[in-house]
Amino acid sequence: MKGDFKVNTLLEINNLHTKVEDMQILKGLNLKINEGEVHVIMGPNGAGKSTLANTLMAHPKYTITEGNIIFEGEEINNLKADERAKRGIFLSFQYPEEVPGITVENFLRTSKSLTSANPISILNFRRLLKEKMALLKMDESYAKRYLNVGFSGGEKKKNEVLQMAILEPKLAILDETDSGLDVDAIKTVSEGVGLLSDSKRSIIIITHHNKILQYLKPDYVHILIDGKIVKTGTSELVHEVEKNGYEAYKNLN
């Protein structure tokens, strides 16, 4: 019998193998994420963290050679990035692209109308944008600027979180959102992300340091080494890594 307390699985990754230009990066990765959970994925450079993020978002250069990705009970291996976005997957980019001539506002309005089931009026959209920008301590003038053009590293990351706040995805993947940010910016961004987490929304935080974790409390922490998750634990694991480094986990592979 299905009860009210049943936890729903949002994302299930089974035995995922991914290649990038003939290089095998992911080598049998397994991961299960339930609705409302916050997961952290840590690992050394080159372990496959960004590959996981890009594979989940269907970057055309990343090819799944084995295994599958199940989202809300359906395999999505063959769905393109835009189709995955429409189902509620969002990736906050490590290096967001600059798009001259397209304003943040126009871009977000297009994106919002494509990814939400119910149409939103221009007026309501502007209200929503204003509100979320205030939340992220972004000046309103950003709405009229060209997407990421001339933005500093920190501004680009904030803009990613702004997009996430507007689009309200079911699953948000934050790829090194904390890298390149100063302490204050990490705080603002983390608080922004924190405000978005609720019982329905799941978040994957990919990071190789722990600053962001001072603000966001994960349910699970995974250690990714050489294309596989080698250990899963709670927040405690973060401190363990801090103490021992990744070296200690390499033989677990």
Binding site: A85, L91, V99, P100, L114, Y146
Partner: peptide, 21 residues
């Protein structure tokens, strides 16, 4: 890819880049 990850189709993404240009 960046634009597609926000729900915009490949065709529309290209058009958007050209319009911006």
């Amino acid at each position: 890819f960046y634009l597609m990850s926000r729900g915009i189709s490949e065709k529309e993404a290209k058009a958007m880049i050209v319009r911006g240009f």
